[in-house]
């Protein structure tokens, strides 16, 4: 870590604790939670079960992959992270971890993630994981993020791929259900991030990141958020229509989806940071509830049987 920045006279144990805390923040735990939960659900929904230890290693590989993406992103964005209020407490922005160190940590973690995924679940899953990390780093972070307001639309693919990787790790192939899981997270991402961008627009503007509210204005963004919320709900109902998930999931998808669309429409009707913030927070609950409902549905005996 950058030696000049850590001050004080704490002992070695205290230093280790501080370093662990900084690494925890560096790895973006919020994003990682989402990646791990959606992947775990995909792993449990897959028709072929992995050995529990191998499943654990697959999850570890996905966590390491997500941490690698976050660390490399922290390296590349440390200049704008210093400017934005939302990110200025990150250890790379504050100088407690040097950006080059974050890059090193990220590259090592990426190699580790791909290697253990390959050894535990085969090289197709490992290749897919490597492609996901490369997509996030090169396509989203380095290319799209500072160039186009569609950054999080296209970049959202990186966050939507982990459930597909988990499914491939378990089964060795890609089926319809993981593609639907991909579609749900992919379509959910713009609604989620643009809700955040609505009440952080000034922050993004200062940093020169062309998020949609900065480029196209708040009203246009709110309409896009509502559109993507609607598309997310439509995608979430596909597994019910195809009979892969049943009534329990269908009910949660319909009720939570209805609430998501209503929250988005409220943002369209009234230009309010409070409502945008409420939508942003609910969108997280929504995605967790949706994926939890998939597990519940399967536990209630719904697999592969239409409920009607």
């Amino acid at each position: 870590m950058q030696e000049s920045v850590r001050a004080g006279t704490i002992g070695v144990a205290g230093e280790v604790r501080e370093l662990a805390r900084d690494l925890f923040v560096l790895f973006k735990p919020g994003v990682m939670q989402l990646v791990l939960f959606t992947s775990l659900v995909a792993l449990l929904l897959a028709p072929k079960a992995l050995h529990p230890v191998l499943a654990l290693v697959v999850m570890l590989a996905l966590a390491a992959g997500a941490a690698a993406c976050a660390a490399i992103n922290n390296w590349y964005d440390s200049d704008i992270d210093r400017i934005m209020a939302r990110t200025r407490r990150r250890p790379t922005a504050q100088g407690r971890i040097a950006p080059e160190e974050a890059l090193g940590i990220g590259v090592v973690l990426a190699g580790f993630a791909v290697a253990i995924m390959g050894l535990a679940a085969g090289w197709l899953a490992a290749a897919l994981l490597a492609a996901t990390i490369a997509f996030y780093v090169f396509i989203y972070t380095m290319w799209l993020k500072r160039r186009t307001p569609q950054n999080i639309v296209i970049g959202g693919a990186a966050g939507a791929l982990p459930p597909v990787v988990a499914w491939v790790a378990a089964t060795g192939r890609i089926d319809l259900l993981p593609i639907v899981l991909f579609a749900i997270v992919f379509l959910w991402t713009p609604a989620h991030f643009w809700a955040l961008a609505l009440y952080r627009a000034a922050d993004y503007g200062r940093a020169g990141v062309p998020m949609l509210p900065v480029v196209a204005g708040r009203a246009a963004t709110a309409r896009q958020v509502a559109l993507y919320a609607l598309l997310t709900v439509a995608a979430s109902l596909v597994p019910v229509a195809t009979g892969e998930l049943g009534l329990a999931y269908g009910l949660v998808a319909a009720v939570a989806g209805g609430r998501l669309v209503l929250a988005a429409l409220r943002v369209v009707r009234s230009d309010s940071d409070v409502l945008a913030n409420r939508l942003f927070r609910f969108s997280i609950t929504y995605l967790f509830a949706l994926f939890a409902a998939m597990l519940l549905d399967r536990a209630l005996g719904g697999p592969w049987v239409p409920w009607w």
């Binding site: 030696e3 850590r6 006279t9 070695v12 280790v16 501080e18 370093l19 662990a20």
Partner: peptide
């Protein structure tokens, strides 16, 4: 001393 302690912490991690 501070720098040595930080290096030790890093090495432990």
């Amino acid at each position: 001393e501070d720098q040595l302690r930080r290096r030790r912490a890093r090495n432990l991690v």
